[in-house]
Each structure stands twice: as structure tokens, then as C-alpha cells.
């Protein structure tokens, strides 16, 4: 499409003005490619989906600046690549850490950060939970605080196990987006990975 760059400039301008339909167009144009790259490198569907969400959330959060970007596609892929790299690095360190005996590894700066911000993040998490729908909240709390399995939650709430799965997955996405939109990635990645693990357990 020869007119694509011009067309894209218009779309970006419209996104910067808050046009959701223009954002949807840009999302439709790129999200599968970013997903493919993220999945190729992380090998987890859930992680690749989170990366797609994080990248486009960032685009949406800073929509006002989009018209200033000369080469949007490159910019977007650099953003995606940086997210993928951060995940690879963090997840590698985490697993190295876990395979070594306690005390053999010095505390990573990232974790110190995470500890300092722990209280703040807990507050943020609570805020994020409060903005869920009542049913998502219930499912989240039963899974997180009472550590119930998906089947047990389904039994308790009289829902099908599939429905609980949908609620859980929406709740996790919504919480993550809420937190990401308010805090930069590096500080919270550890924290989010923990949530992610719980997410796997609940599935």
C-alpha cells in the first residue's frame, strides 16, 4: 500500500485526539506481528499476550506524543523488543536465582527496588482490584487469598469452570493494565511475575 505512511500519520493524529477507532485500526495492523515475535522469543502464550497488552497500552497512554514520531512502525517494534528483552532478562535471572541455594546469590538491585516499592505496589494492587467488576473481584480473591483451584471457585460460586477462567483472565489483564498505566515497567516486573505465576496456578 503506497499510501500507508500518510494514512498512518492521519491515524496517529486521530489517536492522539483520543479516537478509539483509529487506535483499533493501528492495533489490528500490528498486534499479530508483535504477538508472533513475543511468542517466538518467550515461548509462553500468556507472556506474549501480556507483552502485546503492555506495548499497546503504552501506545495508548502516551497517545498525545504519537504525531511526533517519524517512523511509527520502527518505534513500535523497538518498544516491543525492549519489553521482550526485559522479560527474557528478568525471567532468566529469576530462574538462575531459584536453581541456586539460598545465600549464594547477592540481592539484585531490581529486587531491592521491588522491596522498597512493595508497600506502594500493594496499595496499587488493592486499587486495581477495587476497579474490577464484583464477579471478577470475587474470583480473584478466592483464587489469590484463599488459594482455591478453578474448580473449587466454580463450585463455590455456582459458575462453570469455563466462566471462572474467563473472569480470572479478564481480572488479571485488567489488574496488569491498571498497574502498568501507573508505574513504569522495571520497578514492577518482579511483582507482576508473581501475579503471573498465580495466574498459571489458577488456570
Amino acid at each position: 500500500m503506497p499510501d500507508q505512511p500518510d494514512n498512518e500519520k492521519i491515524l496517529l493524529q486521530r489517536i492522539s485526539e483520543g479516537a478509539q477507532d483509529a487506535f483499533k485500526d493501528v492495533y489490528a495492523r500490528y498486534h499479530e506481528k508483535i504477538y508472533a515475535l513475543a511468542f517466538h522469543l518467550t515461548r509462553y502464550e500468556v507472556v506474549a499476550e501480556e507483552i502485546v497488552q503492555d506495548v499497546f497500552l503504552k501506545v495508548w497512554m502516551q497517545k498525545e506524543t504519537l504525531p511526533e514520531i517519524c517512523d511509527f512502525e520502527s518505534w513500535l517494534f523497538i518498544l516491543a523488543r525492549n519489553h521482550i528483552y526485559t522479560w527474557l532478562k528478568t525471567s532468566a535471572r529469576r530462574q538462575v536465582h531459584e536453581t541456586l541455594a539460598d545465600g549464594h546469590v547477592s540481592v539484585e538491585p531490581l529486587e531491592v527496588d521491588a522491596a522498597i516499592h512493595r508497600k506502594e505496589l500493594e496499595n496499587l494492587l488493592n486499587e486495581a482490584i477495587r476497579q474490577l467488576s464484583p464477579q471478577q473481584q470475587q474470583v480473584y480473591i478466592l483464587s489469590r487469598e484463599e488459594q482455591l483451584t478453578r474448580e473449587a471457585i466454580a463450585g463455590r460460586l455456582g459458575l462453570s469452570s469455563e466462566t471462572v477462567k474467563v473472569h480470572m483472565s479478564r481480572a488479571m489483564r485488567s489488574i496488569r493494565a491498571y498497574i502498568m498505566s501507573r508505574r513504569p515497567l522495571t520497578l514492577i516486573l518482579f511483582f507482576l511475575l508473581k501475579i503471573l505465576v498465580l495466574f498459571f496456578l489458577a488456570m
Binding site: 511468542f39 476497579q131 485488567s174 493494565a177
Partner: peptide, 27 residues
């Protein structure tokens, strides 16, 4: 890259989550 397809429905779900983030979900 090889073609990897996203799980069904996830693509829309992510889009809705992003657009809903500035305004927390209600019912």
C-alpha cells in the same frame, strides 16, 4: 517468523482492556 495465532478472543479482550484502563470497568 513462523505464523503464530493468538488464542481466540484474546486479541479483542486485550484491546478492550487497554481502552478500558483509563476508565475502570463497570457494569
Amino acid at each position: 517468523l513462523p505464523t503464530y495465532k493468538m488464542r481466540e478472543g484474546t486479541s479483542t479482550e486485550i484491546l478492550e482492556t487497554i481502552l478500558g484502563t483509563a476508565a475502570p470497568a463497570t457494569q
